[in-house]
Design a protein around this nucleic acid. Structure first.
Lengths: 144, 144, 144, 144
DNA sequence: GTGGTCTAGACCACT
DNA sequence: GTGGTCTAGACCACA
């Protein structure tokens, strides 16, 4: 259900958070579904329960799940998550636009690139080269 | 010439690298111009010379500058930098598109957002408060 | 008769205790009325009988109910409860005043806020989202 | 500078967070002041560095401090904190009012109680009796 | 059984 | 030296 990428520079707990957010967004996990227990998931992924706990804490803080003591963690209403996710995406898009602008790349080039990308079925999975060194970090090729 | 933003979560050396790359890209620094000396810049910014050295090492590794022993560091040909910068930008754009795709946001929405953004003179300067919290870290984070 | 709010961070037994205390205070349950049996209530609420038992134990400890072996649990005299509840409320009010004082908020601001609040019919039902995050936990948290 | 109350039912990291928030609010710690290092404070309080780390993470999440890797943690601008603290206090006051309302205690009684309290110099430090058992938890008598 | 907290000790990146 | 992450193992409260 969840896979950890140890080559990913991002911390494990953050990967777990992201995976679950996507599972919720994509409707794999629905409102009031039970999350795997902290210990069970930790065992399954062969990582420490504290790390899962931290991920779950973050998910709860973000409003993605709620906790019932002694019972477990459960999915919250995904609607608010959806909206927040959109804001995140568009925020990142804004960041890229700003960067592009600084380098003299106009918005037309960006939209052109998106259109080319989407018309072809081009995936960017294997484009990782020498990232993680200087200018950016994390976010390699998420696997599901 | 260079300003450090201590509230930026990115490491200082990385900020320095980025600043210089932008100065080169924007033509403020030109081919064979002399970089400030490590010690002078460190003093000016009140940071550890090791940090500047690390930034210069990184810039050299990226081919942005070259070192002449006993003389100093000098700007390389900016053309190759320009091309690499473009690849970086488009790479990040691809990342955003992938994320959007996973959340069911189509390319049309993205291009629409870019166009709206560019037609309005919207800058995203003051949207930094809640960055660096959860899912991503680093990023650009404009500083003044 | 009793509703559990699983999204409330307080333990279930505590919610049950509070519900009954309010039912008594508001005169819905009167002196010597019979409480629902532990097993019946547990079944009705689909929760573990142990949890109900614990709530009843707590209610007995607080003097709200008394137990007759083999017969069931019954409501005590509500008057003492009323007085204790008042002490609790004013105790919490004192806590808030202390906190406010530490932050430089004078008593006048507090009374002003209460008066504004009461003159308007403002209810605070939908302000629960970001509770239970940081500085405090538990609390009342109205549930429907 | 910071004292831990082991009798307080709240977790240690939460106490630490609260203490620092008050130190900032009261102007003891000012913008860009350096926080004690995680390890140093842990040693001073004889608790585990991880616990302090967790407290500092929470403070950063709340915008009270910012982190410079390899340098330390520093106080952010206290203004936003002030506003948020006010909202917290008034939120708690609202909670108390709601509780009081349920028990038939009108706003007038509350304001009267506040006024009596403030005209006398009554502190509520030693009013702890049998709390921590059922109805409420945490927040005993904060010491500074 | 569940989640929540804490300790002890380790490793890493950054300054 | 700094903070950030992770592991291992323990204890507690709740169901």
């Amino acid at each position: 259900m969840i896979l950890i990428d140890y080559k990913d520079s991002r911390p494990i707990y953050e990967q777990v958070v992201d995976k679950f957010r996507l599972l919720i967004l994509n409707g794999v996990l629905n409102k009031d579904d039970k999350m795997p227990s902290v210990r069970a998931l930790a065992m399954e992924l062969s990582i420490n329960p504290n790390t899962i706990q931290r991920a779950y804490n973050e998910l709860e803080r973000q409003g993605c799940i709620y906790t019932v003591k002694g019972r477990g963690n459960f999915i919250s209403d995904p609607e608010s998550l959806k909206e927040e996710y959109r804001r995140e995406i568009f925020g990142k898009l804004d960041d890229v636009c700003d960067l592009a602008d600084k380098a003299g790349i106009g918005p037309e080039e960006l939209t052109a690139h998106i259109e080319v990308r989407s018309s072809a079925g081009t995936e960017s999975e294997n484009r990782q080269g020498d990232k993680d060194n200087g200018t950016d970090k994390g976010k390699e090729g998420e696997q599901s």
